[in-house]
Design a protein around this nucleic acid. Structure first.
Length: 564
RNA sequence: GCGCCUGUAGCUCAGUUGGAUAGAGCAUCGGACUUCUAAUCCGAGGGUCGCAGGUUCGACUCCUGCCAGGCGCACCA
């Protein structure tokens, strides 16, 4: 049980003893000012109306009837009715040993045990390489998966491959044109084609691979380019998608992001006839109608509050199902098949699409809270203060690989994770590169490296150290030491809060604060010294800080270096 | 025109689900290395929380209306 849970229990007991009603919730916060205690609650103020007593009086009653707990040194009533809790130093120091014993388990919980979560992120069209905003979504999505798993949830991460439909065809046509150009034929790039140089490179690869197979290969190629349109698009499209997907997968792997599932729109949804099945399910609920030869979804009736009060097409008059229809099927039959909660990370260009998808999910019987969409806002890339224009269509962009090369994986991930996902982000490449040594990520990592360095010194000096989780922490009486320990005790609740709110940036900020508490301590107090009892206690404290930094950085997918 | 996101220190961003005197990093200025790593530490300056109302014991946080920027409003995805 966490500290705040214990405190909440104490408050409830006190209220019961005092004959007062219980609050619906008891929210604890860590006050900004140390003199306001280690934890504070406004329970008395929220109770004032129901109890018909002034807040301060209620708080006094809580203090009077509060049970004796080993965690608590004293309680104070302050301000308009705050209840401030001061933790007992001896208990805090003792908790250090429990953290060390918990090891990489510290910060984990079973709060989400039994929850099955499907988490989709990045899912860029397989029509080009990944770019910077994809790196942002990858960092957030991957960290979310780690956070949710740390709370016991069974998370399946998914990359949805949009390998069908209009954009797939555009890619296929563009690639075919590049192949023909490579063969010396002066064919133009189609309208709405993809002009990027990467397709020229791919076409060159394609042709040289055919050539490498000798006469057979070239013959196969020649028969391909004269096939029916459907055959040609299928062949060139599949080939290009497979290559581009492989590039994307490699870039993500270099970034430390691996997926559990790569869903193919064509293979896993369309070929299984799930779209038609979804349309029937909606029709059975009376939520579709025919108009102008097309099949429509009664979006507004189903709760689509996008504001434009328009119904949405599910099947075009041409007979083709829309992306929307396929997506409904994907969510309903594929994602929800083995999950009770579905989370999608979308770009801001898709936010208008969310209400209709949400409406469709609810129409198909999924509770509103079971389907969540996080909008990951755009990254404005600056180079020397000037915005870098990016357009996949015009073939101008900064690749995810280039970002990694310039600023590094850890710095890139940490930077993305120090912003809320729904906040637009400015990323100045020149600044990030030039000032990389002053990036907050290095501040946190350096704290870890310093701790490791102490361990190395201990080893080199031949100092015998018994298992630190059994060390006596009572010599840790300095204010900085007490403050560090109390901060370490907050970690599990920070992680839980971040997981619950789907906000990994909370962990990143908290780690910076932990490092900010450690560095001055390191400066002012020598760990290795003659007083053996004190040294062992400090070694235990440092080991705990190092452990928590490792655990926290792991949740962000950032490495904890042994030395820097 | 309608909808979504954003607006907090010179810059980039946090702000604990409505709490106490609004914070961090960078940048600027001034100090600290004979000692476990100076990618560090100590100190200083810097604010009409876009604007105006409202809700209440209390508002950066919630509501309404404006202003500014970004994005979206297809039988595209």
């Amino acid at each position: 049980m966490s500290i705040t849970e214990r405190l909440t229990e104490g408050v409830r007991t006190a209220l019961a003893n005092a004959g007062l009603p219980e609050p619906p919730t008891c929210v604890w916060e860590v006050p900004r000012q140390p003199e306001h205690g280690d934890y504070a609650t406004n329970a008395a103020m929220t109770l004032a109306r129901a109890a018909k007593k002034p807040p301060r009086q209620i708080a006094e009653l809580i203090v009077k009837h509060f049970p004796s707990l080993p965690e608590v040194e004293r309680l104070e009533v302050a301000g308009p009715g705050f209840l401030n809790v001061f933790l007992a130093p001896a208990w805090c120091a003792g908790a250090l040993r429990e953290i060390l014993a918990a090891g990489d388990h510290y910060g984990r919980s079973e709060a989400a045990r039994g929850r099955r979560i499907r988490l989709e992120f990045v899912s860029a069209n397989p029509t080009g390489p990944l770019v910077i905003v994809n790196a942002r979504a990858a960092a957030i999505g991957d960290s979310l998966a780690r956070l949710l798993r740390s709370q016991g949830a069974a998370v399946t991460t998914e990359y949805y491959v949009n390998d069908a439909g209009t954009q797939f065809e555009a890619l296929a046509r563009s690639f075919e044109a590049r192949v023909l150009q490579e063969l010396g034929q002066p064919v133009p790039l189609p309208d709405n084609g993809y002009p990027g140089d990467y397709l020229i490179d791919l076409a060159r690869d394609y042709v040289s691979e055919c050539r490498a197979k000798g006469a057979d290969g070239m013959q196969a190629l020649e028969s391909r380019v004269v096939g029916s349109e459907r055959e040609r698009l299928e062949h060139f499209g599949r080939w290009a998608v497979a290559r581009i997907l492989e590039q994307q997968r490699r870039a993500l792997r270099d970034y430390g992001v691996e997926y559990d599932v790569w869903t193919s729109e064509q293979r896993d949804v369309r070929d299984r006839g799930l779209a038609e099945q979804a349309l029937e399910a909606l029709a059975a609920r009376g939520l579709t109608y025919e108009k102008d030869g097309a099949l429509w979804f009664r979006s507004t009736e189903a709760g689509d509050d996008a504001g434009d009060e328009k119904d949405r097409v599910l099947r075009r008059s041409s007979g083709e199902v829309t992306y929307f229809a396929v997506d409904i099927a994907n969510h309903h039959y594929v994602k929800f098949a083995d999950a009770d909660r579905v989370i999608d990370l979308f770009g801001p260009d898709h936010h208008g699409y969310v209400p209709r998808l949400r409406a469709a999910m609810q129409a198909l019987g999924h509770p509103a809270e079971a389907f969540e969409v996080l909008i990951v806002q755009l990254v404005t890339l600056l180079r020397d203060g000037q915005p870098v224009r990016m357009s996949k269509r015009r073939g101008e962009f900064v690749l995810m690989e280039e970002l990694l090369e310039e600023v590094g994986r850890d710095a890139a991930r940490f930077t993305f994770l120090t912003r809320r996902h729904d906040s637009p982000l400015e990323f100045d490449l020149a600044v990030a590169t030039r000032q990389s040594s002053e990036n907050p990520v290095y501040y946190v990592q350096y704290a870890h490296a310093r701790i490791r360095s102490i361990d190395r010194q201990v080893g080199e000096q031949g100092i015998a150290v018994p298992p630190l989780e059994k060390a006596d922490p009572s010599p840790l009486t300095a204010p900085e030491e007490q403050a560090l320990i109390k901060r370490l005790l907050q970690y599990p609740e920070v992680v839980r809060g971040a997981a619950q709110a789907l906000e990994p940036h909370r962990v990143a900020y908290w780690l910076s604060e932990l490092a900010a508490a450690f560095h001055p301590y390191y400066k002012n107090h020598r760990v290795i010294q003659d007083d053996r009892r004190l040294m062992l206690a400090r070694l235990a404290l440092c080991a705990t800080v190092g452990r928590v930094i490792r655990n926290g950085l792991e949740l962000l997918g950032v490495s904890a270096p042994e030395s820097m």
